[in-house]
Write a protein that binds this DNA or RNA. Sequence first.
DNA 1: GTTAGTGGATAGCGCCGCTATCCGCGCGGA
DNA 2: TCCGCGCGGATAGCGGCGCTATCCACTAAC
Lengths: 214, 214
Amino acid sequence: MRIAELSRHSGTSIPSIKFYLRERLLTAGTATGRNQAEYGDGHLYRLRLIRALIDVGGLTVAAARDVLAAVDTPELPPHFLLGAAHGALNRPRRRDADDPSWRSARDEVVALVRARGWHVDDDCPDFDHAADAVAAFRALGQDDLLECMETYADAAELVAAREVDTVIARGEPARMVEGVVTGTILGEAVLNALRRLAQQDASARRLVDTGDLA
Amino acid sequence: MRIAELSRHSGTSIPSIKFYLRERLLTAGTATGRNQAEYGDGHLYRLRLIRALIDVGGLTVAAARDVLAAVDTPELPPHFLLGAAHGALNRPRRRDADDPSWRSARDEVVALVRARGWHVDDDCPDFDHAADAVAAFRALGQDDLLECMETYADAAELVAAREVDTVIARGEPARMVEGVVTGTILGEAVLNALRRLAQQDASARRLVDTGDLA
DNA sequence: GTTAGTGGATAGCGCCGCTATCCGCGCGGA
DNA sequence: TCCGCGCGGATAGCGGCGCTATCCACTAAC
């Protein structure tokens, strides 16, 4: 397959493909001459993965590169790949770690995780992200919404258990690796969309003055 | 309060505040002279809300403006505000609606929502976002991860019910409006972070070869 | 009266994700 | 055999976004 065909099958413009090659998200095709190369199904799959990470998952090109680099490390056990995938999802830090209200928000999240017996590395950046949001709730005087935290944790436990089981059921390490990345990033998009749909429903049930929902 | 003080209390630079004024995310202070104005606690709160939406929620400035405009529409019932908040969260469309695999992914999501009896407007853009992700799973040959869909829906129902109940418990419409916006946007950030933490735990329990987690 | 600071306007910057253009070469059809 | 399209590779540029810098006339505070 040459680049034009790759472009047609993937729905990605040739300049974009060249861009991804330059940025090392995509490996070069196997050269068949001085200025001719052949691309395979692997390239097509990879391109679809890139577009999914960027378009659906909302990753930046740099983040996608990090995720893909982790995917390409064959000896990386799936559990550590998960950490790599999460690491690449991190948007730059927002809050100042010296802000005492932020620190207490973070401590609160750590306490919640500890209370549930989750075994997570203490300096995992996800704590910081959760703390950003918790601190924002507090700063905006929306403390009562933090009553939902345990429910969030319940929901998180529920979906994480299911996802990890599904991925592990694959058995084959290479496919587990793919599953970790796609499940983490695309699963987030699905969950967020379903949550918003469920909110619409819950809100309609409670707030819309009507008897004829049928 | 003058602008310097507003800047200090909010941790936002004066040029940024001026930028938000220009972009109409923030209303002008009450003028006390030809080139002097006074800002109140409302401005400080608003600025904190802006930063939370942009930094924590990941909204663009334009999306934040739309959300804030909805918040400022006093007669808007909370249920419709929810729609407005969701609308502002929409990233630009990705998939072509003519793509049959995308259409079938969307139909699948609609069927799931129908089966659960959720009452949601059929052309809600959240369907499209979910469809994007589902279609991506399929395109990447990760169909087995779609077995998690029901679990995602369970989790979504769980958290949405709790969130909506919490907001409704406030009673006062103005505070409900605040709760809808912050709950939707910041809650998403919390849920996503907790899900990733839970994934780390689930993955560690099943994949890490160790007996001494203590 | 001096000076730091103000609101307001305009222009510019830095990053990001592409996109356009050019180049010398090879492949494929007549 | 020759021609012309397409190739790969490289470099430069573009458009949008979220600020940021500068300038201005003015004024409150010392």
